[in-house]
């Protein structure tokens, strides 16, 4: 069972207060009609599923109901941190580039 820090409530709470909401920062194609089936299929179905650090969305469903991002290790379940969507994005992008 994880302990997760909600960046809105600013408290560490038990996992059962939260709902998992999938990989974070998946960009929805801006003009879906202009992309081919392969690109659209990639967006709908393909996920990174890494063995290691994973940026993922969680929703504080039994709390403030906000969606935020958590960077979690899929092997050790260690949590490196949690951020609002906007705060996390800069960090996420800088990691993606390096």
């Amino acid at each position: 069972m994880l302990r997760i820090h909600c960046p809105y409530c600013r408290e560490v709470r038990e996992e059962e207060e939260f709902g998992y909401a999938g990989e974070a920062y998946i960009a929805r194609p801006a003009a879906p009609e202009e992309v081919d089936d392969a690109v659209w299929g990639d967006y709908v179905f393909h996920r990174k599923n890494p063995r290691g650090w994973h940026w993922e969305q969680w929703q504080h469903v039994a709390g403030c109901r906000k969606v935020f991002v958590v960077k979690r290790h899929t092997v050790t379940y260690e949590i490196a941190g949690s951020w609002t969507l906007a705060e996390g994005k800069a960090l996420y992008l800088s990691e993606e580039q390096s």
């Binding site: 709902g19 909401a21 969305q57 929703q59 109901r65 906000k66 969606v67 969507l85």
Partner: peptide, 12 residues
């Protein structure tokens, strides 16, 4: 939850 998530993540 579905409505909230689309609103918060994609169309804030």
């Amino acid at each position: 939850s579905w409505l909230e998530r689309w609103h918060q993540t994609e169309w804030p």
